[in-house]
Design a protein around this nucleic acid. Structure first.
Lengths: 359, 359
DNA sequence: CAGTGCAATGTAATGGATTACATGAAATCG
DNA sequence: CGATTTCATGTAATCCATTACATTGCACTG
C-alpha cells in the first residue's frame, strides 16, 4: 500500500516519453497530469472531483503531482461539460449606495454556505447593463441572477428563469421576490411625524418607475388620510435617490415658498441631502424641521443629528434572496413566492415635536 | 440576391430531418441554428462573429433564424476555444466602503470602452476569499484581476501575472500598481494642522500590514519632525478603517487622559467615528478638536461639520488601473510600472485654529 | 478557353474537462 | 472452486463553439 506511486501497474508503461512539457511552469491540462502521474485522465479527474472513489495510493500520488506541477483545472471546460458554474451574478443598481452593501453581505453568506460564488455587476440602473450581465446566464457563464431593480432582464429560456428579485419587486408572478412592506414602513414613519404634531409634512419621492417608490408614497398618503390631513401635492418633490437630489428637492420646495415642519424622504441619501439643504438655508433639524429617511444605511446614525429612518432588514433581504435562488436552481419546479419582510421605524435625533406655529 | 433564404444551394439537402428540437423554446446550439438555416455551423459562427466575411443574403437569413429561435452562443465553449473571456475581476476589500465605489466606476468606464466586463468580488480582506477569486483566472474564467489589497494572490503561471494593483501597492516589482503619494498626502494634512497652530496632534493609524498605512503614518511623523514637535507615541491609536474603530480610538485616547487639539485619521470612516466619539464626550469639532480624514468619500462633505480630508483621485485610480491591465493583457511584455498620483488636501469645516491653551 | 484568384461556404480538428460504459482484478459467496 | 460482486481504472464519447484547411463556383486575365 505504498503511496509513492512506484507500483503503478496495469499500464502500457509509456510514461515519461509523453509530450508533457515536463517541469516548465506553464498552464497544465489533465492530460499532462495524467501522463506525469502515469494514470488515465479519468482517474485524475476522479481524484480531484470525487476523491473517495479512487484508491488512496493513487489519490495521494495524483495530488502530489498536481501540487508539484501546479495544476488548476480549466473551469470553462468543466462547466461546459457539467452545464453548471456555481456562480451567480448579483445586479446592483448602484455600488455607491451603502444600502446595497449590506444586502450583498447577506447574499454572499448564503452563497458561500452553499458552495456558490457571487459576482457583482453594477448596472447604474441601465437596462443595457442589466441585460449585458443577464446575458451571462443565457451564455451559461453563470447559473442565476439576483436583480435589485424592478425589471426582469430577458433570458431566452423556457420555464422558470433562474432569477430572483430582491429589495424591489416585479409584477411578474413567475419571479420570486423578497422585499419589505414599503407601504407599512412609510406609513409608520409618517404616522410618527403626525404623533409629534406635524401637519405640514413634505415628501421627497423616488423614481416613479419603481414600485417600491410608489408604495412609499402610498404609505405617506395613507398616513395623511388617516390623520385627516389635506396632503398638498405641492409638498411632494421627486428625486433619484441621490444625496444631491435630496438637496435639490428641498431647494425647490423652499424656493416655491412651501412651508412644512417635517420631510419624509424615500431613502436615506436624499434625507442626508435634505438635511444639508435645510441647514444651509438656516433651518435647524429637528427644531425647525424634522427629517425622516428610509433604509437605515450605515452612515445615517453618524449624521448630526442622527437620522430617524425606516430600517430595512438588509442582511435578511440578501439571505432570503439567495436562499430562494438556490432553491430554484436545485429544483426549477418550486413555485415562485413573493416574500415580504417588515421595515421598522428607528427613531433618532432628526425628528422632534412640531415647533409652535410661527406667525 | 433575395434574403429569404429560399435559394440555399450547394448543400446536401438533409435540412429539416435533423434532430434539432425544432421550435421548442429551449437552449440552442450552433448546430440547431445551422440546420434551421440550412447552412453549416461554420457559417453560423462566422455570421455572428465576423459578419463581413459572410454574404449579405446568408448573413441576414442567419440573423433572422437566430432571432426567431432565440439563440445565445455558449460563452463557455467559445471562451474555451478562444482562450479569452473579456472578463476581469476586481477584488475589493469592502463593498461598504464608499471609497472603492468611485474607483470601481473608473475601472468600469475603461473596461467598457475596451469591450471588457467587470465582475466584482468582495474579499473582506480575507486571503482565502482573495485567492478564491484569483483562482478564476487560473481556471480561465477571467482574463485578469485588479486587486485593491496589498497582497498578490497566487496564480500558477509563468511570466507576468495578469494582475494590477490599485489604491494599494505591493513590493513585488513585477506587478504594476497605481496609488497615491500617501506620505505627501498625510504630510500635507498634518502640515496644515501645524499651520493652524496645533501642537498636540493625535493620529489614528490603519491596519499596520498595509503599506499605505505605513506611508500615512510616515507622512504624519515627517510633518511633526519638520515642525520640531515631539510626536508622543501615546497619541497614536490603531484602527481597522471602520467607523467603529475611529470611535474606539478616540475613546481609548481620551480614557488614557491624552490631551490633543487635533486628530489626523488614516481614512474618512475612522474620522467620522472620531467626530462622533468626540461629540459624545462633549468636545466640539472643530472648536475644541480639529479632525482630518483621508480619502474624501462621498459622505464626508455631508457631515456636520463637513470633514477636512485628503482627497484621492478615485476615478483616476480606477481608470489607470484598468488601462494598465488592458495594456498588459494585450501585451504581456510591457514592463510593470508603479504609478503614483497625487492626493490633495480639501479643507472643510472640521478643522480650525488651535484653541487657546486651557489651564 | 485554360488558368488564376477570390469569395463563400463546408468539413473536421480543436480546446480541456467529465463521465458512461468497458475491463480486469480482487473479494465474496455458495 | 467456479460464479458473482465490487472496486479501481481505462477508453472514448461528449459538451459547444471556433477556425484551419479544403472545396466549389465564378469572375477575370491573357
Amino acid at each position: 500500500m505504498s503511496a509513492d506511486g512506484s507500483k503503478r501497474k496495469r499500464q502500457g508503461g509509456k510514461a515519461d516519453t509523453s509530450n508533457a512539457t515536463a517541469a516548465s511552469g506553464r498552464v497544465r491540462t489533465v492530460k499532462e497530469i495524467a501522463a506525469a502521474a502515469n494514470v488515465s485522465v479519468a482517474t485524475v479527474s476522479r481524484a480531484l472531483q470525487r476523491p473517495e472513489i479512487v484508491s488512496e495510493a493513487t489519490r495521494l500520488h495524483i495530488q502530489e503531482v498536481v501540487k508539484r506541477l501546479g495544476y488548476t483545472p480549466n473551469a470553462l471546460a468543466r462547466n461546459l461539460r457539467t452545464a453548471r458554474t456555481r456562480l451567480i451574478v448579483a445586479l446592483l443598481p448602484d455600488i455607491a449606495n451603502p444600502f446595497f452593501s449590506q444586502v450583498i453581505r447577506g447574499i454572499e453568506q448564503v452563497a458561500h454556505e452553499n458552495g456558490y460564488s457571487v459576482l457583482l455587476g453594477e448596472t447604474q440602473s441601465s437596462l443595457v447593463r442589466e441585460q449585458a450581465y443577464a446575458d451571462m446566464v443565457a451564455a451559461r457563464q453563470a447559473d442565476g441572477i439576483i436583480t435589485m431593480s424592478h425589471r426582469v432582464p430577458a433570458i431566452p429560456m423556457q420555464g422558470r428563469l433562474p432569477v430572483v428579485n430582491a429589495c424591489e419587486y416585479v409584477k411578474d408572478q413567475q419571479i420570486s421576490s423578497v422585499y419589505v412592506d414599503n407601504v407599512a414602513g412609510a406609513r409608520a414613519a409618517v404616522d410618527y411625524l403626525v404623533t409629534l404634531g406635524h401637519r405640514d409634512i413634505a415628501f421627497i419621492a423616488g423614481p416613479p418607475a419603481s414600485p417600491i417608490c410608489i408604495d412609499r408614497e402610498q404609505g405617506y398618503r395613507l398616513a395623511l388620510e388617516a390623520a385627516k390631513l389635506p396632503g398638498d401635492p405641492a409638498l411632494t418633490a421627486v428625486g433619484d435617490f441621490s444625496i444631491e437630489a435630496g438637496e435639490r428637492a428641498i431647494e425647490l420646495l423652499l424656493s416655491q415658498g412651501q412651508s412644512f415642519t417635517a420631510v419624509f424622504c424615500s431613502n436615506d441619501e436624499m434625507a442626508i441631502g435634505a438635511m444639508r439643504a435645510l441647514a444651509s438655508r438656516g433651518l435647524r433639524v429637528p427644531q425647525d424641521v424634522s427629517v425622516v429617511g428610509f433604509d437605515d444605511i450605515r452612515f445615517s446614525r453618524y449624521m448630526t443629528p442622527a437620522l430617524t429612518t425606516v430600517a430595512q432588514p438588509k442582511n435578511a433581504l440578501g439571505r432570503e434572496a439567495m436562499s430562494m435562488l438556490i432553491e430554484l436552481l436545485n429544483d426549477p419546479e418550486v413555485p415562485p413566492r413573493k416574500r415580504v419582510l417588515s421595515a421598522d421605524l428607528v427613531v433618532r435625533g432628526s425628528t422632534a415635536p412640531c415647533p409652535p406655529r410661527r406667525a
